[in-house]
Amino acid sequence: MPEASTDPTARRLGPLAGLALPERHEVEGDVGITLEVPGPVSIVGVEARRGKSVTLSRRVKKAYGEMPKPNRGAGETVRLLHVAPDTLLCLAEDRAEGALHAELRELLGDAAAVVDQSHGRTLIRLGGPKARELLAFGTGIDLAPEVFGPGACAATMLGHVAVTLHLRSTAPTFDLIVARAFAESLWDWLKGRAGRFGYEVVG
């Protein structure tokens, strides 16, 4: 049995903990895809209550500097993805258990439903020069760089699994947020299609 930890984030053991192990599979001496499961990540869903759309935008702007436009992400330490009308998916790394939820509840609790999803969703980071090609196997959205550029986010289907995509940088680096119960299936799907490009799982 693992020893009890005093680390407040230690309880957040993701569903890919025993699966996303470092490995490298080259094709012609190269890899086109990198996969990583960063952790622990705090994930909180925010949805404005009826008539509170403006209140939500105003308070988010005041606290974090910007209310992202539809289908865009904004923010550094707290990332806010505007994935649906009056709905944000909020992400932060290296936060203590429940801290992001408490912060957003304090800020928006009377104007929005604020739900901690840190245990319910998993973040998979996908990078490498072939990342767009890989995603194109499984989603119908337009991934052309001039359409889906840095900062873009989308709620879509990937390999028949509902995911939220966020393009963090031009590198490109995509963050994929998926429901916990589908994480293993999506992980297998990603690795299965990454094989042809060569891939590396970063520990």
Partner: peptide, 8 residues
Amino acid sequence: FCGDRPSE
């Protein structure tokens, strides 16, 4: 909201 999407 989302723009062009497949009917699936």
